[in-house]
């Protein structure tokens, strides 16, 4: 992408150079004006729907509502500095939600991406049968809206309704997929089911872009299928793996739909189960300053983690 755009840039700056100096400046100006005109609708909406909300959240997180002792007059907004951040971070429920999401991410993201990479490699192998069918089957969960998938899974694990629990009962096992201990694995499973196929398709597309001659030459040299996967294919799809990891980290940070819907069949799931859930809960309680503060903390954490991951792979990439 970078090379394509830079080549593009030189090509388009070179184009008017053939003309005389006097005509070049107005054309240049006119094009800049056109660019501004073309960009205007997007930039206008972008500022209103992206930049403004972000600034507004940060602003809100620095204030709190002050109510007088009797609560007779309307509450006023007073500057609170960073005290909201102290309150949020001292709140065991919020800290617990951050830790929970971190743990779910540490376990679920590698499992999901490992599965996605494995399936993509199998589908990419030359001799595999029924490729088209398998590709569709794996990608199907992504075509289901996230909340619909979550409703489906909530019934698949709900006590009394769950065919999985019923089957386990048949085998003499007592299984409650909505018990406190099982909530995190159940949510992890919902995420893995929903997103493995999507990630697999990204990795698979990258695998398909590898020239066939590379694998053929390696086979000729006596390299096994495992060797080709490990030494040639996986290193070459590294950018796709990095991209899917970053998207997965951000996706896990904003975990909300699955726990919120699971809550409807598992009332033991607390309304501060994940940070976004806690922030939405604060909005429901009209505590916008707390919601804003929790959002900023979560955004910073997601940013640090995904950026840290990028830096880590970049350094490792340089060493290799």
């Amino acid at each position: 992408m970078t090379t394509a755009t830079s080549r593009q840039a030189t090509a388009s700056t070179r184009a008017p150079a053939g003309r005389t100096q006097s005509r070049r400046t107005p054309a240049h100006l006119r094009r800049a004006r056109t660019a501004a005109l073309f960009l205007a609708p997007f930039l206008l909406l972008f500022v209103a729907m992206y930049a403004a909300p972000i600034c507004y959240t940060v602003y809100q997180s620095l204030f709190r509502m002050h109510r007088d002792g009797l609560g007779l007059s309307a509450p006023t907004q007073v500057f609170a500095g960073l005290s909201n951040y102290g309150t949020a971070l001292a709140d065991p429920a919020f800290r617990g939600s951050l830790l929970r999401v971190l743990l779910i991410g540490i376990v679920q993201v590698p499992v999901m991406l490992g599965l996605a990479l494995g399936l993509a490699l199998l589908l990419d192998a030359r001799t595999t049968l029924f490729k088209r069918f398998f590709r569709l089957a794996f990608f199907l969960p992504y075509a289901l809206p996230g909340v619909i998938g979550a409703i489906m899974w909530s019934y698949l694990v709900a006590p009394g309704l769950s065919p999985i629990t019923a089957a386990a009962h048949h085998l003499g096992l007592h299984l409650d997929l909505t018990s406190n201990a099982m909530l995190a694995p159940t949510i992890g499973n919902m995420l893995t089911w929903g997103w493995t196929g999507y990630n697999m398709l990204i990795i698979y597309s990258a695998l398909q872009a590898i020239p066939a001659e590379l694998s053929e030459a390696a086979t000729m040299d006596g390299c096994s299928a495992w060797g080709i996967a490990w030494r040639i294919k996986i290193p070459l799809v590294r950018p796709a793996l990095v991209l899917t990891t970053v998207f997965s980290i951000i996706g896990t940070a904003q975990l909300y739909n699955e726990p919120a819907i699971l809550h409807n069949v598992a009332p033991n799931l607390s309304s501060t189960y994940t940070p976004i859930y806690a922030a939405y809960d604060a909005v429901d309680a009209n505590n916008f300053n707390a919601a804003a503060t929790e959002s900023v903390i979560l955004a910073l954490l997601a940013f640090v983690l995904s950026f840290g991951f990028l830096k880590l792979v970049q350094r490792r990439g340089a060493a290799l």
């Binding site: 909300p53 972000i54 959240t57 904003q254 916008f288 959002s295 979560l298």
Partner: peptide, 20 residues
Amino acid sequence: TVLAAVLVPQPLLAIPLYLM
């Protein structure tokens, strides 16, 4: 800037947008 915005978690925009 546009590229960076792809990485902004959507729920974080929804709350302030609601207030605005």
